[in-house]
Design a protein around this nucleic acid. Structure first.
Length: 551
RNA sequence: GCGCCGUUAGCUCAGUUGGAUUUAGAGUGCUGCCCUCCGAAGGCAGAGGUCAGGGGUUCAAGUCCCUUACGGCGCACCA
């Protein structure tokens, strides 16, 4: 296949040549933006404004010199200098229409790039403790991490998805005690249940499950066996939920393996050897304040156990050692405080890990509304909404789309009734409907004897109306949008783009007929419509949302 | 008290490395229209905002800096 045609690069090269002549030595980054108003042209650049200061010249004069040096281009109909020194570029119809041909040529690959050069990137997400089912917060993270992984893969990165199980430590001990208490209650309903234990109904199920499979230990006295049984059962359940959500991982990393394989021990030794630790109050401390932390952190508690951040550091050493120079951790913002200290631990080791490793995508909390009231999320109280509940009630596509419609920095309110009941207000249906409608049009074209190959090869020059130009412009913006979503770790840009694209299509649909008498116009419109369908499908695929052919 | 995030239309939210004519966008809600015609799960039009308040930087600030207020989350020898 030929190298993808990239109009923006063409224009940047074209401007660059003129700048080299008009302002020798200046090599500015040439930003091309979409003017807010169509009458200002198809693209605009502020490069003259940026060059004005270093050249000590009037921006309009700089713009004049650049424009005078521009060579004729088959893509550019006209240029004009406007306002303070903007250079507005008006494309030829051929340049606007070229994107349709490009979409048909590249199909599912339209919007992808090789920018990542197959470099490896690990995305760690969900990483729920096996102490209960996945709740809505994990759902947001699953949707976010999965979409981010898709976006980075689309940009040419070799993406590796990892789930980290904290299958050891105090919270697991608490789970074990909780299950043991429920086992005792099975024999004696009056047996005490600790207040701090996990109260969820699932703990009773784990207890019943244990005595059914461990006849040799009817009292649940073997804590290790109870732990293994409970963790395994919860992992199976989490796996089922993730599968139902359409999320898969390349690897599940067990915290316990960090101990059994000696990673924790070696990390501690290395940190002690680095000379950045000290003992105080019977505990071992790391001088994280040397790396931007506001206080030093305990590594080894006075009871001899390590604090959570030690295995965390050891875990990230393994990520680095496994060859991932880029790692993105998707986490709730309530874990924000770990960022500084994990990085501090890695820097203290001085094994070449740069500052800023790993990278983090932190998301704000999720609130669930049911029946106009907030549902409190408390694992211990056993009152929360699980990912499974949401998928069952709302549907996988809507759940994913809703979780991705907010930027990670925004708190998200998931109103179950709204997502479920008012389907006509649900944006995911709006976008999916646009795709289904396009498929319907193409089916009718096919029934009229117009085959797909003919549509893909149609002459495009009849596409000149305002509706068509609006669609062409949005289609051309798709690869730029995906690139930005990747660069900014901002998958939410995709749902917003898709809503805009669907809206432009629905307007077009209501304003014009596609299956018109004029064969050239008919084919050109069908070609544009097919291209729109392809891009909707590509975008939805990044979100992990289905693109139905009929609804 | 310290740190991070947020504050944009009645409500829910976008706003791309700060950019353009006295006009800051979308959805939803509200008002009024559009199917003898490719799926009305759609479209068109209208009303609705001193971009939380105040300073500052800049030719140019919703966007950057400082500050105040309000809200969320952290600040454990829990993860």
């Amino acid at each position: 296949m030929n190298a993808p045609f990239d109009l923006r690069s063409e224009l940047q090269d074209w401007l660059s040549a003129a700048i080299a002549q008009a302002a020798p030595g200046a090599v500015p980054a040439i930003g091309l933006e979409r003017p807010k108003q169509a009458q200002h042209g198809d693209y605009a650049t502020t490069v003259a404004l940026q060059l004005a200061k270093p050249l000590r010249a009037n921006p309009r004069e700089v713009a004049t010199r650049i424009v005078a040096a521009l060579k004729p281009s088959p893509w550019v109909e006209s240029t004009e200098i406007a306002g303070a020194g903007f250079i507005n570029i008006r494309l030829t119809p051929v340049a606007r229409q070229a994107v349709v041909r490009e979409i048909h040529a590249r199909g599912a690959l339209f919007g992808t790039s090789t920018a990542g050069h197959k470099r490896r990137v690990m995305i760690e997400f969900v990483s729920a403790n096996p102490t209960g089912p996945l709740h809505v917060g994990h759902g947001r993270q699953a949707a976010l991490g999965d979409a981010l992984a898709n976006v980075l893969a689309a940009q040419g990165w070799d993406v590796y998805r990892e789930f980290y199980y904290n299958d050891t430590g105090e919270q697991i001990n608490n789970l074990t005690r909780s299950v043991q208490a429920r086992i005792r209650q099975l024999r004696d309903p009056d047996a005490p249940f600790p207040n701090a234990a996990y109260h969820g109904e699932y703990v009773r199920e784990l207890a019943r499950d244990y005595i059914a499979t461990h006849p040799e230990d009817p009292q649940g006295e073997n804590a290790e066996a109870v732990r293994v049984s409970a963790v395994a059962a919860l992992r199976r359940e989490q796996d089922r939920d993730l599968a139902a959500f359409g999320v898969r991982f390349d690897n599940y990393y067990l915290e316990s393996s960090l101990y059994t394989e000696g990673h924790v021990e070696r990390t501690v030794e290395a940190l002690v050897k680095s000379g950045q630790t000290y003992e105080q109050d019977g505990a071992l401390w790391l001088k994280t304040t040397g790396y931007g932390d506001d206080k030093d952190r305990v590594m080894k508690k006075s009871d001899g156990a390590f604090t959570y951040f030690v295995p965390d550091v050891a875990y990230h050493v393994t990520k680095w050692a496994r060859g991932f120079e880029r790692v993105i951790n998707v986490q709730g913002a309530d874990h924000h405080s770990t960022v500084t200290r994990v990085r501090a631990g890695l820097r203290a080791l001085a094994i070449g890990i740069p500052d800023g490793f790993p990278d983090y995508l932190l998301h704000q909390m999720v609130t669930v509304m049911r029946g106009g009231e907030e549902v409190k999320i408390s694992k211990r109280a056993g009152s929360y909404v699980t990912v499974r509940d949401l998928i069952d009630e709302v549907g996988r596509d809507a759940v994913r789309f809703f979780f991705l419609m907010r930027k990670a920095d925004s708190q998200l309110t998931f109103d179950i009734e709204l997502a479920k009941v008012q389907t006509e207000e649900n944006p995911v249906y709006y976008v999916q409907y646009a795709h289904a409608r396009i498929c319907s049009v193409l089916r009718q074209a096919q029934q009229a004897g117009i085959d797909r190959t003919t549509i893909l090869q149609a002459r495009l020059d009849p596409l000149t109306s305002a509706y068509e130009n609006a669609l062409l412009r949005l289609l051309a913006d798709y690869p730029v949008m995906v690139e930005a979503a990747s660069r900014d770790l901002a998958p939410h840009a995709i749902p917003f783009y898709l809503k805009d694209l669907a809206a432009a299509f629905h307007s077009y649909y209501n304003a014009e007929h596609f299956l018109v008498k004029d064969p050239d116009l008919r084919l050109a419109r069908l070609s544009l419509v097919a291209a729109t369908g392809q891009v909707l499908k590509n975008g939805l695929a990044l979100l992990g949302v289905a693109a139905p052919e009929q609804m």
